[in-house]
Write a protein that binds this DNA or RNA. Structure first.
Lengths: 229, 229
DNA sequence: TTAAGTATTATTGTATACAATTATACGTTA
DNA sequence: TAACGTATAATTGTATACAATAATACTTAA
């Protein structure tokens, strides 16, 4: 649910999506203090629904609470990012196994469409589009799998990872090419219904993209660290 | 954090732990309607902090929202339980690998104590005690691993599983004995620092206990189903 | 000038009041 | 009696007021 979901009727949901977007886009940077009154005024709602939205974001880990009870935008770290990818890798493995079991021909067609678009764009400079189709591929798997809890956790993890991606633009180099072509391979294995193999290839696929991300954030951290000394 | 955490200062936290306990213990049964006003009166607090607690429980999946916005205690199902154990298995695998890497001799001693207590009690009828030491074993691993996000998700999963355990008392038969002795084996492999093996043995360990739980809930479901027809 | 202590302000926590919505009860009509 | 519509009540959503707490600014003494 990273993409804006605009059938929000309630002030609470409005605040949730709005603040989340501000954080993921980096407009509220890591460790920025959050003052309820000010944010409420900005969003033109009262503190009550805003607080409820902030609590949810706190639970999701995008907002954190200082010892004194005050809120701030969550900080980022290489070790956290590494952990996020580890969990994601395990869950994507579970998901793809279930998706493989349940996939209809129609489902496989949809995945095929994504793969073809990725292959088509591969080599071009439309890296953001490639990224989008990659995400779409995974989202289709989520839906096929029908694993509610896993998908919920995964979407949350992906929100976090997206924030890292914005704050520290990951390398957009040829090193991503073999990663993108993994989708091709995964779909092939899904068709063969090889459950063990599809899980391990998926897990490796995720950990490969983790490497790029972690490298980028490590550079970033060494660049800006010592700020709080 | 299933065990009551009584340094709650705020009404919100009080409500959170209290309502969670009511749900896990089954005193608020699945699908029971939750009326904010009544619950607030019962807990002798106002609706505002109660609502914040309920939202957190909703996000954790112990409370769910009907299409009309009203809350109820979450329902249970075999398929959900199966998924809970799958995720738990993957995360316990990640955790035990990290714990194995980081464990000090002192840490291993603490684990050894649990294992010895389990072995000592094994064969006796003190099944609840055995269960407690089993939980303690895993909790120690969580702390050693120092993987904040994974542990947070795991504790949440365990709360859910505990609720199932209360609602549908799992079999307390000799079938659990080999599962309990897994702890012994896991500790041995940790000492050998065999990371691949420790992960797979842990995953199997969890999935074995899953079998017992799922069997129990399946019976339970077939017993009470058709209620909503 | 610095340190400690106190007053002031800022911010969060909680309760309550009211508005909006949904469910229920009741009566009317076919 | 069944179906519909309307009035009433129950419940949730939001705003606001006030209380509790933490941060800051200020004053005074050494």
């Amino acid at each position: 649910m990273t993409s804006p979901n605009y059938q929000q009727k309630s002030a609470k949901d409005y605040a949730y999506f709005e603040v989340k977007e501000l954080i993921i886009k980096g407009e509220l940077p890591p460790e920025e203090a959050i003052i309820e009154e000010k944010l409420a005024t900005l969003l033109e709602i009262s503190r009550t629904p805003l607080r409820e939205a902030l609590q949810r974001l706190e639970w999701e880990g995008l907002v954190s609470r200082r010892k004194n009870g005050r809120l701030e935008v969550a900080s980022i770290s290489t070790s956290e990012l590494r952990e996020l990818f580890k969990i994601r890798s395990a869950l994507e493995g579970i998901i793809v196994v279930h998706a493989t079991k349940k996939a209809t021909n129609e489902d496989l067609e949809k995945l095929e469409d994504c793969v073809q678009m990725i292959n088509l764009l591969s080599g071009s400079d439309r890296v953001d589009d490639i990224l989008q189709y990659g995400k779409a591929f995974h989202n289709i798997l989520y839906e096929i799998s029908d694993l509610e809890t896993s998908v919920r956790i995964l979407r949350q993890l992906n929100d976090h990872i997206d924030r890292y991606r914005r704050l520290v633009p990951f390398e957009k180099t040829k090193s991503q090419k073999p990663i993108q072509s993994d989708h091709d391979l995964i779909l092939k294995i899904m068709r063969e219904k090889d459950l063990d193999k599809v899980a391990s290839v998926m897990e490796e696929h995720i950990m490969k993209s983790a490497e790029i991300a972690i490298t980028a954030v490590t550079k970033y951290e060494s660049g800006i660290s010592k700020r709080n000394d």
